[in-house]
Design a protein around this nucleic acid. Structure first.
Lengths: 208, 208
DNA sequence: GTCTATAGTAAGATAGAC
DNA sequence: GTCTATCTTACTATAGAC
C-alpha cells in the first residue's frame, strides 16, 4: 500500500471513529456531515470522497460490528439444540447480547434511530426484530419440537425477548441511568425470562 | 361559540386528524408541515395560526390520548395491591396496554420516533420507559413487600416489561406483519410474563 | 381566519484549486 | 486526496392581502 493510500485509509478510519463519537453524543439523526468531518479534523468535502452519504457510513459500521460479533462467537459450537430453559445456557445468550450492545453502543443506537426514522409503514422494525431474533426462534422451535410447552408462537416470543432486550439496552446503556451492574441486570433478565413473575413454581426460593 | 370560532375549531380538528393520518403513513419525522395542511385541504400558513410547531401538535394529541385512557380506566378500582402473579389480573393489564396502543397507533408511533430522535444522550428513552411503567413498578413493589421473590429490581423488571410491550407493539401494530389475533398475542405475552420460558414449574400442562 | 407569496435557514452535495 | 467556496434544495416560518 502506497503512502497516498495510507493517508486516505487513515482519513477513512478517522471519519468512522468521529462518526461513532458523534452518534452517541448527538444521536445519529442529529449528526450532520459537517459534525463528523470537523470532529475528525478534516474538511467538509472529504466526506464524499469516502462515502456517498451518512447511511452508507452506518452500513459500513454495521458490517464491522457484525463481523466482530461473528468473530467473537466463532469457535464456539452453537447448535440449534441449545436449551433456553436451562439457566446457564439462557444466561449465556442474554449476557452475550447485552455485551455486544454495550461494546457497540454508537452503532446500536444509530441503527435504532435509523430504523425508527423509516416510519411505521415501512415494516422495518418488524423485519429487524425478527431478523435479529432468528437464532432465538430456532432454539424455541427446537424446544417445541422436543415437546416443551411454550407460552406462544416462537416467532412472537423471540420477538418479545428481542424487543425487551433492545429497548432496555438502548434506554439503560445510553443513559447510565441505573446503578445496577451489568451482571445484576443480566441475572435479573435471565430469571425473568426463565420463570417470569411467578417464579420457579413449587421450588420457590424463600429469600426475600 | 360564534360561527367564526366554529370554523376555526373545525380547522384545528381537521389539522389534527390529518396529522394522525400522515404520521402512520409517512412517520412522524418524515411528515412535513405542508403534508399536514394539504392533507387537511388547507393552506400552509394556517398551521401556525393553531400550533407553534409539529412538536406542540404532538403534545396535544398525546394529551388527548392520555385523557382518553384515563377515562377508560375511570370507575375501575385500581389499587396498588393488584397481584400480577394472578393470570387474570396480569392479562387485564397487558391487554389494556395493548389495546390503548392499537387505538392510538398514530400517536404512539409518533411518540416513539420523537423519543428516538432526541438521541441517546438525552436520557429520554429511559425516562419515558420508567414513567410509563410506574404503575407496574408500584404493583411489583407491593408484591415484594408481600414477601414474593421477584426476578430483580422492580424498576428494572417494570422497564423490561414496558420495553417489551412498546417495542413489540410498535413493530407488530404498525406493520400488520403477523396473522396472530390480538387475543392470541395478549395470551402469549401473559403466559410469558407470568411463567417465562420454563413454564409453570411442576404443574406443566402436557399439551404440546 | 384563511389565503398566497416569499423571506430565511440549514444542510446536503459538488466544482475546481492545490 | 484534501481543501475552500459555492450551488442547490427543501423546508420552516412569516408578512400582508382578503
Amino acid at each position: 500500500m502506497g503512502v497516498r493510500k495510507m493517508r486516505a485509509a487513515g482519513t477513512r478510519e478517522a471519519l468512522k471513529a468521529a462518526a461513532r463519537a458523534q452518534f452517541v453524543e448527538r444521536g445519529y439523526l442529529n449528526t450532520k456531515i459537517t459534525d463528523i468531518t470537523s470532529a475528525a479534523g478534516r474538511a467538509t468535502g472529504v466526506f464524499y470522497d469516502h462515502f456517498t452519504d451518512k447511511e452508507q457510513l452506518l452500513n459500513e459500521l454495521l458490517a464491522e460490528m457484525h463481523s466482530q460479533a461473528r468473530e467473537r462467537l466463532a469457535g464456539q459450537a452453537h447448535p440449534r439444540e441449545h436449551d433456553l430453559t436451562d439457566r446457564a445456557q439462557l444466561r449465556e445468550h442474554l449476557g452475550a447480547t447485552w455485551h455486544v450492545m454495550r461494546d457497540n453502543l454508537p452503532v446500536m443506537t444509530a441503527l435504532f434511530e435509523s430504523t425508527m426514522s423509516a416510519g411505521p409503514s415501512s415494516d422495518r422494525a418488524w423485519r429487524s426484530l425478527t431478523g435479529d431474533t432468528a437464532v432465538i426462534r430456532a432454539h424455541l422451535d427446537w424446544l417445541r419440537e422436543s415437546g416443551h410447552q411454550l407460552p406462544g408462537d416462537p416467532t412472537l416470543i423471540a420477538a418479545a425477548i428481542g424487543g425487551m432486550l433492545s429497548m432496555l439496552g438502548y434506554a439503560v446503556l445510553s443513559s447510565g441511568a441505573t446503578d445496577l451492574s451489568d451482571d445484576e441486570i443480566v441475572d435479573s433478565l435471565t430469571a425473568f425470562v426463565l420463570h417470569g413473575l411467578a417464579g420457579p413454581g413449587a421450588t420457590a426460593d424463600p429469600r426475600s
